[in-house]
């Protein structure tokens, strides 16, 4: 692997761009967190690298586009993977659409993307892949965003689980992330849920759980 240059520092990882056998790649390195107990830190980091690699592969085998994993090094806590070139995050794309046009127009333009996201999540969930950190920063659109080449990334918090509860929480996490990040995004999220429901025959239980988790938030007692 060639020398690497830092491109991004997220919450738990540094992302570098490098090349792997002549191909551009991304190195995701989870760094030590000095605030947490060393054995907890080590165990979480290893767990997350393993979850991420497994889910990247498993999603891809089930037809959801993810970066190809080139190699993994648990010693240095690194994953080397395909760089999704010429891509933007869904987050940046939504923001640019909303900036460049009226509210009504942007709602219309974002509809197909909402459908695509819903279908993709349905595939993941039907294969019992729970992402664990669904946000618009963890979805990329490659080349022309209008082509809807959606690539899912950042599976460190993922797990395999057939429980409606876990899938419901997955959607809940996405709902909160979308509503808190993007103004006027209610319809966009409804579109995601609609297409999720249409593409996933087992969605009724999941949606019921989603409603339940939403309610829990409101019922918590106020005792200081």
């Amino acid at each position: 692997m060639s020398s690497k240059t830092l491109i991004k520092q997220g919450a738990e990882a540094k992302l570098y761009s490098a090349t792997f056998h002549g191909r551009p790649c991304i190195v995701k390195e989870r760094f030590k967190k000095s605030y947490r107990h060393p054995s907890l830190d080590q165990s979480l980091t290893n767990q997350r690298i393993k979850s991420e690699v497994r889910a990247l592969l498993r999603s891809r085998m089930n037809g959801v586009r993810t970066p190809t994993v080139y190699f993994v090094d648990l010693e240095t806590s690194q994953i080397c993977m395909e760089e999704i070139r010429d891509s933007v995050t869904v987050r940046d794309y939504i923001m640019s659409v909303q900036k460049s046009q009226s509210l009504e127009d942007s709602i219309v333009q974002l509809k197909p993307l909402g459908r695509k996201i819903g279908e993709t999540l349905a595939v993941l969930h039907q294969n019992n892949i729970v992402h664990g950190d669904l946000t618009t920063s963890n979805m990329l659109l490659q080349s022309d965003p209008m082509n809807l080449n959606l690539v899912m990334i950042d599976f460190g918090l993922s797990h395999f689980e057939n429980l409606a509860e876990d899938k419901g929480v997955d959607l809940y996490v996405l709902e909160r992330a979308i509503l808190s990040t993007h103004p006027n995004s209610d319809e966009f999220f409804s579109e995601i849920l609609d297409s999720y429901t249409q593409s996933n025959p087992g969605s009724a239980d999941v949606i019921a759980k989603l409603d339940e988790v939403r309610m829990r938030g409101r019922k918590r007692t106020m005792v200081g």
């Binding site: 907890l40 979480l44 664990g132 950190d133 669904l134 946000t135 918090l157 929480v169 997955d170 809940y172 996490v173 996405l174 909160r176 992330a177």
Partner: peptide
């Protein structure tokens, strides 16, 4: 058990 789901 350590349970973090996104920001929840």
């Amino acid at each position: 058990p350590y349970t973090v789901k996104g920001m929840d």
